[in-house]
Design a protein around this nucleic acid. Structure first.
Length: 838
RNA sequence: GCCGAAGUGGCGGAAUUGGCAGACGCGACGGUCUCAAAAACCGUUGAGCAUUAGGCUCAUGUGGGUUCGAGUCCCACCUUCGGCACCA
């Protein structure tokens, strides 16, 4: 008789033992293949929620599996500890962000330990500690030295609720990514990182990465590389006055029937004629007031006003009216466009609204090749119903000397002509913008810059780092950094001339912290309290040499165009600094899906469908919660939490418990037959093949299903003569080893109770024998005219001829064939026979 | 609007990539145990028809197509989710 499965006791026991024996200690072993396995670090919001469990426990199973396969796995963890919630808590509850954050970390650390993951706590990093963020400042200075950090006065996205500017990546659908408030534009001087310098490399690097296509596509779209031509348009009647337009379609230049400037375009004031001034100014004013979200929602209806001025189309010398319209934006291209209504949907809508002509200048190749002008003007007339935007297989018409040119020749020749005659140049345009780093908040890394009345912007000398975030500050959300009102922080003497100067009071975007944390983990708080120099390396280089880069990264897809883009950028800069010798920070990426509430909706307090994992860990134990989360469905798809579903998984663990420890109900006497032994071993090795393959591909749901099926098989076999044989022991051992990565506690406990050496997590992954896994006989479906009419049992090696003979000999098959002549027999060895008789 | 992913029992989801649809689990129903209930265990469970035996028919969002054979491939459409969006 044995005691019942009691997860509370055994989980606590083993977690302590693992910690005591340093089971997950990092060791740089040159004889083993290193495997840096990383899961996105959590924000210390207060409690570990189900989403954290869903992200981290399958990740842990993946890491443990890699380890059993003989890799030297390192699985570090830390906390992304700067950020707005801490500051908001300070404002609401009058508790200091530091205290709030550290208390949360304390609690979450405990919860994380209950998960039983193989985290290496010795290298934990907390980003809000000076020993960490001093390196943010050090990097900032480095970026500044390299010309990658600069100050720029421009309209920037601003969240009026969070009271801070945002990077473009943090604006989702015109709203703040954090709080959902529609953002507004503000003209501010802000620090930016020149990520656009790496646009091409960020794009090309994607091809080499073993990342989900989804993420790669999102990054490609975000970077938005477009090849085109920029050229000059003269304003009629203003000698020498011109503006530049960018187009990806120079081949349509003869179709230009108007030009548009963005309302904010600097030339608007100059060219507007007196009789249109009032109207234009009113329009500009209105455009300024609109938030980007409003502009977006009104996107359907084209608006604009005529400036009274005309520009000359350089291609044909014709004047075209210049409008201003808010569908042209100042920060895209040159802030001015040529309007080609026949071949651009938006221009088409605009022209229709303002009654502008719509000349056709490209037609499909087939229309052109028919050779007669009538056909392609017919085609053109049809195109007039709707703008024709294709470029592959089109030919230029009504385009003077260029008429008859086909894409891509049309592009090239017009581009050359514009280069020669309209100050044109081929240009690549990107959607990507430089990364806006400044935040007007307290709880972040101070930007290490000084504003001197004599010297202008002066960097803090490296040896003066870190610029400490003062502990006392007023947390009043004013839209300006709280540091601005902290006299002790603000005032400083200029390191260059000694004059009274003041510090930069903005802090850094917290995505700065996570852009390099995979390097910080190597040696957290490296040189904390020491004097820094420009020649430093922010981590122990020897350790980095061994572990970098990250081999496997897991985390949510919501970071596709934020963190995952920034950290790639950072790594490329680090490489240019000579700190690393690779181009990409994370070689493989897996995005888990989202865990939903029992109602299938996103968990949220307002919906009242939040599942607290602690309750379930309390009731069923961590192993059950882990296994259930893996069992729900494909890890990358997520799915709803099911309170009944977790019961089923828990029952499975109980079944394993009694399978391994309890005596059979009826002791079968005598020796097992050879066949019984073979069947058992076959089940063992077939399951092992399946489970190994599933772990490798993070298909945890079918992995657990296979373990359940195997357990069911073993439960039946237990009551037969095979119980207690070598084959039986092999089966039980293999079962526990296969469970170990996913359910680390129960497998360790049962392993110990079988008298095996500590620890199961130090064992090698068992080797599957494909010979033993082979089926002895297979059931073949026999179809007559595509419908299964009989089944025959044969050896898997049975030849095609034999299968055909056996199938035709079958009585039931004969009945269905009747007297119809057999026309064809399809034989798929090992699968089926299909007899066509008609 | 453009791009991408998905749509399978009452539910979560399987299906070696063109070869027996529904693995595994939940739920439901029936049974064993029990004075009873819970737990546990053992059956049954896509729908319909037929149940005297063998069975038969229909089923993977909809409609077509290719094929001996389609959840899987092709075309059109519907729905859901995600990304991008006056990006010139």
């Amino acid at each position: 008789m044995t005691d019942r499965y009691d997860p509370q006791t055994i989980e606590k026991k083993w977690q302590e033992r693992w910690a005591e024996t340093g089971l997950y200690k990092r060791v740089e072993d040159p004889n083993k293949e290193k495997w840096y396995f990383l899961t996105m670090l959590p924000y210390p919001s207060g409690d570990l929620h189900t989403g954290h469990w869903y992200a981290m426990s399958p990740s842990d199973a993946g890491a443990r599996f890699a380890r059993m396969q003989g890799k030297n796995v390192w699985f570090p963890i830390g906390f992304d500890a700067f950020g707005l919630p801490a500051e908001n808590a300070a404002i609401r509850h009058n508790i200091h962000p530091y205290k709030w954050t550290m208390a949360n970390i304390e609690r979450m650390r405990g919860q994380l330990k209950q998960m039983g993951a193989m985290f290496d706590w010795e290298h934990e990093a907390i980003t809000c500690l000076p020993g960490y963020y001093q390196w943010n400042q050090w990097f900032f200075l480095k970026f500044y030295d390299m010309g990658l950090a600069y100050r720029d006065k421009a309209p920037v996205e601003f969240c009026p609720n969070c009271n801070t500017t945002l990077a473009r990546e943090q604006v989702w659908d015109g709203k703040c990514e954090r709080c959902g408030t529609p953002i507004i534009m503000k003209e501010l001087t802000q620090w930016k990182f020149r990520i656009t310098k790496y646009a091409d490399e960020l794009l090309e690097g994607l091809d080499k990465l073993d990342w989900p296509e989804r993420v790669k596509t999102m990054q490609r779209n975000w970077i938005g590389r477009k090849e085109g031509v920029e050229f000059e348009m003269q304003v009629q009647g203003h000698e020498g006055l011109h503006f530049r337009v960018f187009t990806t379609r120079p081949d349509t230049v003869f179709g230009m029937s108007f030009a548009i400037l963005a309302p904010e375009h600097p030339l608007v004031q100059t060219i507007t004629t007196p009789e249109h001034r009032a109207e234009v100014e009113a329009y500009v004013e209105e455009a300024r007031r609109k938030t980007p979200l409003m502009r977006q929602m009104e996107a359907r209806e084209k608006t604009g006003v005529f400036t009274g001025a005309y520009a000359i189309n350089p291609a044909n010398g014709q004047p075209v009216p210049i409008f201003i319209a808010d569908y042209v934006m100042m920060d895209v291209g040159t802030g001015a466009i040529m309007g080609v209504p026949a071949h651009d949907q938006r221009d088409f809508e605009f022209a229709r609204k303002f009654g502008l002509p719509t000349p056709i200048v490209i037609v499909p190749k087939e229309a052109w090749e028919s050779g007669d002008e009538y056909t392609w003007s017919e085609e053109a007339a049809r195109a007039l119903e709707r703008a024709l935007e294709g470029k592959e297989g089109t030919v230029m018409v009504n385009s003077g000397p260029f008429t008859g040119l086909a894409w891509p020749e049309s592009f090239n020749q017009v581009a050359e002509w514009l280069e020669a005659h309209a100050a044109g140049e081929r240009k690549v345009n990107y959607r990507l913008r430089d990364w806006l780093i400044s935040r007007q908040r307290y709880w972040g890394t101070p930007i290490p810059m000084i504003h001197c009345p004599n010297c202008g912007v002066v960097p803090v000398p490296y040896e003066d780092l870190p610029v400490l975030l003062p502990e006392d500050a007023e947390f009043k959300p004013t839209g300006e950094s709280p540091l601005k009102y902290h006299e002790g922080f603000l005032h400083v003497t200029c390191p260059q001339c000694g004059a009274d100067a003041h510090r930069e009071t903005d802090t850094m975007d917290t995505f700065m912290d996570s852009s390099w944390y995979q390097y910080a983990y190597l040696s957290p708080y490296w040189k904390d309290g020491e004097t820094l120099s420009p020649d430093d390396v922010p981590w122990d280089q020897a350790v980095g040499e061994y572990w970098l880069p990250v081999d496997q990264y897991t985390g949510g897809i919501e970071h596709a165009t934020m963190h995952l883009l920034y950290t790639r950028f950072f790594t490329k800069v680090l490489r240019d600094m000579g700190l690393v010798d690779f181009d990409e920070p994370m070689l493989r990426l897996f995005n888990q899906g989202m865990i939903l509430g029992p109602d299938g909706e996103k968990m949220s307090k307002s919906r009242g469908n939040v599942v607290n994992p602690d309750d379930y860990v309390q009731k069923y134990g961590a192993d059950t919660v882990r296994a259930f989360l893996m069992f729900i469905g494909p890890w990358d798809e997520g799915g709803p939490w099911s309170p009944q579903g977790i019961e089923g998984v828990h029952r499975f663990l109980h079944r394993v418990w009694s399978l391994v420890l309890d005596e059979p109900k009826k002791q079968a006497k005598g020796e097992p037959s050879e066949k019984q032994v073979r069947n058992l071993r076959r089940a063992t090795h077939q399951t092992l093949i399946k489970v190994t393959n599933d772990y490798e591909n993070f298909k945890f749901n079918t992995m657990i299903a296979a373990l359940m099926a195997f357990t069911n098989t073993l439960n039946a076999a237990k009551e037969t003569e095979v119980y207690g044989t070598d084959a039986w022991e092999e089966a039980i051992e293999t079962l526990l080893l296969m469970m170990a990565p996913a359910m680390p506690h129960i497998s360790e406990e049962l392993w110990a109770r079988l008298g095996k050496p500590y620890s199961i997590h130090l064992q090698s992954w068992p080797q599957a024998d494909p010979e033993l896994a082979k089926e002895e006989e297979v059931e073949i479906a026999v179809q007559v005219n595509g419908k299964v009419r009989a089944r025959i049992t044969v050896s898997p090696e049975a030849s095609k001829e034999e299968l055909e003979r056996l199938a035709l000999a079958n009585e039931r098959v004969q009945k269905w064939i009747g007297d119809k002549p057999v026309r064809k027999v399809i034989v798929v060895p090992g699968r089926l026979v299909n007899i066509i008789a008609k």
